[in-house]
Computed example of a mutant assay.
Amino acid sequence: MAYSASILTRAEARLKQAQRAHQLDQARRRAEIYRALPRTAEIDRQLRQTAPRILAAALRQGLGQEEALAALRRENLALQDEEAALLDQAGYPPDALEETPYCPLCNDRGWRGAAMCDCLKDLCRQEQIAELSSLLDLGDQSFDTFRLDYYDRQTWPEFHRSPRENMEFILSSCRSYAENFDAYPHKNLFFNGPPGLGKTFLSACIARVVSEQGYAVVYDTAANILSRFETRKFARYGEESRQAEADTRRYLTCDLLILDDLGSEFTSPFVQAALYELINTRLIEGKRTVISSNLNLEGVRQRYSPQVASRLEGEYLLMAFFGQDIRLLKKQR
């Protein structure tokens, strides 16, 4: 999963904090038990000293290695049994004094071989949702809070159905897309229609649900995304160039890219080429994309290129939004 470097860095920092807090909790618990049961502190000291003491005695007495190890095991087991009995009598679990990792799956490395451990993955997911929340209003935006009552039940002749019927289909499709992200038959969605009809709201709903499943999700406007491709190409060597390279790589490789407001950016031959590179590369790599725009396919064809329009028409599930501006209706109510 192509989490950004900033998300991974923040998640790793939080994991280290959690590990330190876990170690402090263990130290506090150990100190508490030692105060309540001083004999356990003495036993732990003896256990740490058993090996060198018995090996030294074995050398003095001429015992063999196997005899020394057997004596070591007997003494250790006796001390451990005594300590376990003391803990049990005081109501502590038998492992109360053991030093355990915060995450036993990866032993606090955050990785299990080349795979990210669940402990780090969960923190990446939280950081990603926090990052998305700074760009999208994820506060109360969910499929369950989407208001269908703002959409007219009267049939619009040019669409052969009502805005309400249309949005019921779109809402159901978007929910299924998000909840069955890997299995949904259409990998890509194209929302088009006038402003104020719910395109960004549903994009936020999809982003939330897919992020919560642990997938790497990137949301941004078309203007910001395409400007990073421009910076990647024209920036001189240095931090700006490296950052633009990292950003564009993330746009190309993340599990889900949500490209909002296509058509609002300044258009040039370079922007047209960058948009085609973005869409075509993600199609080739099998990566999923959601695009929203005020443009229909004919508008995309005229503004960008027939090739871009062809990719959208052939590889995206097209969802046309129509109806009255919801923002205006909310003000009127």
Results as ranks from 00 to 15, higher is better:
Leu256Lys: 02
Asp260Gly: 03
Thr281His: 11
Gly263Phe: 03
Thr155Val: 14
Lys233Val: 11
Gln272Trp: 01
Val209Thr: 15
Asp261Met: 00
Asp220Asn: 13
Gly214Pro: 04
Ser292Leu: 02
Glu285Phe: 07
Gly286Met: 10
Thr200Val: 11
Arg236Ile: 04
Glu245Met: 03
Ile279Leu: 13
Asn294Asp: 13
Leu283Ala: 10
Thr289Ser: 09
Glu239Gly: 11
His186Cys: 10
Phe201Ile: 03
Glu265Ile: 07
Pro194Gln: 06
Asn188His: 12
Thr155Cys: 04
Gly214Glu: 01
Leu283Ile: 14
Phe266Asn: 04
Ser162Met: 13
Pro194Phe: 01
Ala183Phe: 07
Phe201Arg: 08
Leu262Thr: 00
Ser241Asn: 05
Thr248Tyr: 09
Glu230Lys: 13
Phe190Ser: 12
Val271Met: 14
Leu189Lys: 08
Glu239Gln: 14
Phe201Asp: 04
Arg236Trp: 02
Phe190Val: 03
Pro194Gly: 01
Glu240Asp: 12
Thr253Arg: 12
Val209Glu: 14
Tyr219His: 14
Phe191Leu: 05
Met167Glu: 09
Tyr177Glu: 09
Asn224Ser: 15
Val217Pro: 04
Gln213Gly: 08
Ala204Gln: 04
Ala235Trp: 05
Gly214Ala: 08
Pro163Ser: 12
Arg175Met: 02
Ser203Thr: 11
Ala207Ser: 14
Gln154Ser: 10
Thr231Asp: 13
Ala222Asn: 02
Gly198His: 14
Asp260Pro: 06
Gly238Ala: 12
Val210His: 12
Ala216Tyr: 08
Ala274Phe: 06
Cys174Arg: 04
Leu257His: 00
Leu189Cys: 06
Val218Glu: 09
Gly238Thr: 12
Tyr276Trp: 12
Phe169Cys: 05
Ala246His: 06
Tyr215Glu: 08
Ser268Asp: 07
Asn180Asp: 12
His160Gly: 05
Cys205Asp: 04
His186Thr: 05
Val210Met: 11
Leu148Tyr: 09
Phe159Asn: 14
Phe201Leu: 07
Ala204Gly: 14
Ala235Thr: 02
Ala273Glu: 15
Ala178Thr: 12
Ile225Gly: 03
Val290Trp: 02
Leu262Pro: 03
Gly198Gln: 10
Lys287Thr: 10
Ser264Cys: 05
Pro157Glu: 13
Asp247Lys: 13
Ile279Pro: 01
Val271Asn: 05
Leu295Lys: 13
Asp149Phe: 03
Asn188Arg: 10
Asp220Trp: 05
Pro157Tyr: 11
Gly198Met: 09
Leu226Arg: 07
Ser211Phe: 03
Ser172His: 08
Ser211Met: 04
Phe190Leu: 13
